[in-house]
Design a protein around this nucleic acid. Structure first.
Lengths: 226, 226
DNA sequence: GATCGTATGATTGTCAACAATCCGCGGGTT
DNA sequence: AACCCGCGGATTGTTGACAATCATACGATC
């Protein structure tokens, strides 16, 4: 009697609320710098302040919320400095993921191409929002395919912050065609097992993104300049 | 009137408790798989269950605790699979950190040599515990020097897990001299600005660590074998 | 008029009691 | 003997109330 079922009731209330808070931050309905009033939010979620506070502590740990004791919890606002820190962190995670994908046997590049096609078709439809979604979906998929729990967990937080950047700066960044082709090149490098090329392309891809978001600042600027 | 002071009372109760819990897990006084009884712990910390639960949620988010709703919170137990996932994640973070250190101007390698000397002297004294401490201290310092908030936050969690591995497997791993020289080579590569070499050495260093901890398993094994 | 002090309202932090769920044990049945 | 059922204790989840702290507005003083 070997049922392949997954445990029921596997998520705590704090986990559910945390997920929704994360979503609210992603969409921008909780804007950067905004304070999270406990009473109000508790009412919206229809729970008391206890579970809500537990959920918020999770986001504090993630770095999505900033705690000012006896004052309140606030959505972090991303300084220019954070933008490239964020993309540097993504470079670290995604490069490592790419390497793991390359070294897997067989290489699961199929799903990458699938995500890529979604992005291409969104670009053809000239649907900027869908392009951005497919874009991020691709990067998330890459990390998921690495099979690493830890990389995946870190990536989830970084994705929220990335979306924060995009909505905060009101840019579903431009140059659609360029980004599509960059993704394609990355997948090809992965498919061919060229670790050096894949990581180099990823790094360039990130630098381009930073340039598009915050002109002038670059990834890997020395701290003495920044 | 420009005082360079830091805000007072900057840490919440949940943060303090979380830090102590992390320490307890690090030292092994909270062993892998152990359940965290809320009543008992609350008594030890002399707080009520509320703040304690908030602190525990932080560790859940970190992946240091596993939540089974209505049953309790448990310290994660690291499966063999987790050991190399952990070291793969560390490779990702530390390689990225090394690159950032290399690209900084000036390259802050002094602190790395300092940490390295501490490890050397501990090795000369033949003090295994001190060697392990200095070892991890070196890796933590490397990431700190990268100047990346996000890499640093991720690293903190990974360090706790690393110590869990060491104490769980009762190994302050052997081959002291080899590890010391590996660190030295890494610092030299960083000092000379050789990114390829530095990351390659770091990766080999991690693979050696995994081999020492869990013989047979290797970093970057394909999922079809594992 | 500016600054300091104070009162007041609102919000966060903490707690202890209540509700819900789980675990273990004993009794009963087949 | 094996299994099911249900009860009691223990633990977790949730709640509302209370204490402490913070922000704001108002008035007093120099």
């Amino acid at each position: 009697m070997e049922l392949d079922v997954e445990p029921v009731a596997r998520e705590s209330t704090a986990g559910i609320i945390a997920r929704q808070l994360r979503a609210a931050i992603t969409t921008g309905s909780l804007a950067p710098g905004a304070q999270l009033g406990e009473a109000e939010l508790a009412n919206q979620f229809q729970v008391s302040r206890g579970p809500l506070r537990e959920a918020m502590q999770r986001l504090v740990q993630e770095g999505l919320l900033r705690s000012e004791p006896h004052r309140g919890l606030f959505v972090v606002d991303l300084e220019p400095e954070d933008v490239y820190d964020l993309y540097a962190a993504r470079t670290a995670i995604e490069s490592a993921a790419a390497i793991r994908v390359i070294r897997a046997d067989p290489r699961p590049v199929g799903e990458l191409w699938t995500a890529h096609e979604r992005m291409t078709s969104a670009a053809d439809r000239e649907d900027p929002a869908a392009v951005s979604d497919a874009d991020l979906e691709f990067h998330e998929r890459l990390v998921a395919l690495s099979g690493s729990k830890r990389l995946a967990r870190m990536m989830r937080t970084l994705m929220v912050e990335t979306r924060m950047c995009l909505t905060a700066l009101q840019r579903t960044y431009a140059d659609v065609r360029e980004r599509v082709s960059e993704h394609g090149a990355i997948i090809e490098a992965i498919a061919e097992g060229d670790e050096r090329l894949a990581t180099a392309l990823l790094e360039r891809h990130m630098e381009d993104a930073v340039r598009r978001l915050a002109p002038g600042t670059s990834l890997f600027t020395s701290r003495s300049e920044g």
